[in-house]
Design a binder for these strands. Structure first.
Lengths: 242, 242
DNA sequence: CAGTGGTCTAGACCACTTG
DNA sequence: AAGTGGTCTAGACCACTGG
């Protein structure tokens, strides 16, 4: 029995693009030829070519800017699920340029869930800091931190677009940190998250939750992170899929 | 300032389809009009209509069969991350018809990771059972169970397309179960997984790992599950995204 | 301004199922 | 055989960018 599947032009186009990048040694952020040029080069319609480009964008291998062009992405970042660390330290170790934008700061009353995580009574004042982490000009993570506002009142006066949260806690309060357990899940980007991360609404995104402990074991910070899934890949040693 | 965005036909088409389903009270698995008919009804091109359909398929609201038609999906299933349970019990309680297909059974030697989870020595014989769970005719989960093959040798002789794993363990070995902690992550479907789950390769899927304990606290089973993300939604009470 | 990606159209052929 | 979804084409207009 001869199972000779016809190769679809769109699949061929995906290979042509990947091949083009390799053969021309295009580095990250290099520009591809225009869509119309690639159509002419390979004798396919723009619809078909765009389908291939969309697939590669979904896989995190390309990105595009309107009026400008289509570009090669930087390789996917790899985080290890066994040995999870904060994005800032992860990025620093990997030698990336990390920018931070403060999305929002506010003071909230401690809810039941948060009181369990932070060992604080219900209604206790919490300082909430929501930051957008931008790696190599690309927004990657929304980190929302929750801390004891009554114990660390100086937090409310800081400008976290300049200062690092951990630096402030270390300098002002002499705290040292140990990261507690983290959990990873999957959700879908809300309108606000999609806007901040520059992805489409309803895109699947990672949803991480973790507690940061002081070196004495006291819970200091509860963090929720929403992470783009096209730029990050979480690996797990346990994952030995057949 | 008047921000009057032009409504794109594709977005309008998404609304038209959703509206059509509501106004005609279409139940789950009802057939929509053919693509060509909907194009005529709403005066749009097939490309645009198909874009809208693809979006609704991604969101889990529609599914389609070649040569047959496009259909309304059953509503998304909701699993609670705080109170996670096995799919079989989850499905049974919700009143769904659950089928099981045995993908593979094998005997493997215990690896380092598995030995930690199951408290067994390295190289110990493990019975591996990989099953496809099909809910209402729709493949939903691939569950891969790992158990002590030396302690439960009768497992190797069973026909798990007919018998339930838990029933066998309970009847043959008098075991009672308590579910341990589960972890949820996100990965991308491999070719085999995509084929079994009937989704496209590289689709984002949930990846769950959990340990099932006996009522005495002994680890009995280690399960890895790959779950379709378009049909299941994991909720978390903790998730209070701003 | 010219060029780019983003969107849309009308029409065609294919493999598949049987509404 | 007729109808369906899946795929592909050629060509058009738009908003945005500064290759």
């Amino acid at each position: 029995m001869e199972t000779s599947y016809r190769i679809r032009p769109r699949d061929r186009a995906v290979e042509m693009i990947e091949c083009f990048i390799l053969q021309n040694h295009l580095p990250a952020h290099a520009r591809l030829p225009s869509e119309r040029d690639m159509c002419d080069m390979w004798g396919i319609s723009r619809t078909t070519l765009r389908f291939a480009i969309q697939r590669l964008i979904c896989e995190g291998k390309l990105y595009s800017k309107v009026g400008s062009g289509t570009f090669v992405s930087a390789p996917k970042l790899l985080c290890n699920l066994q040995d999870l660390k904060s994005f800032s330290s992860f990025a620093r170790e990997a030698g990336y340029r990390l920018e931070t934008r403060v999305v929002r700061t506010q003071v909230l009353e401690c809810t039941k869930q948060l009181s369990q995580k932070l060992h604080l009574p219900l209604g206790h004042k919490l300082f909430v800091l929501c930051r957008l982490r931008i790696l190599e000009k690309e927004p990657l993570v929304i980190e929302t931190s929750h801390l004891d506002a009554e114990k660390y009142p100086l937090l409310l006066e800081q400008d976290f677009s300049r200062a690092s949260l951990y630096e402030v806690l270390e300098k002002e309060y002499g705290l040292q940190f140990v990261r507690g357990q983290e959990k990873v899940g999957l959700t879908y980007a809300t309108a606000e998250e999609a806007d901040l991360l520059r992805v489409k609404e309803q895109t699947p995104v990672f949803f991480l939750r973790s507690v940061v402990l002081s070196s004495e074991g006291t819970p200091i910070e509860y963090v929720k992170s929403v992470v783009r899934s096209d730029r990050i890949r979480y690996a797990s040693i346990l994952k030995q899929k057949a």
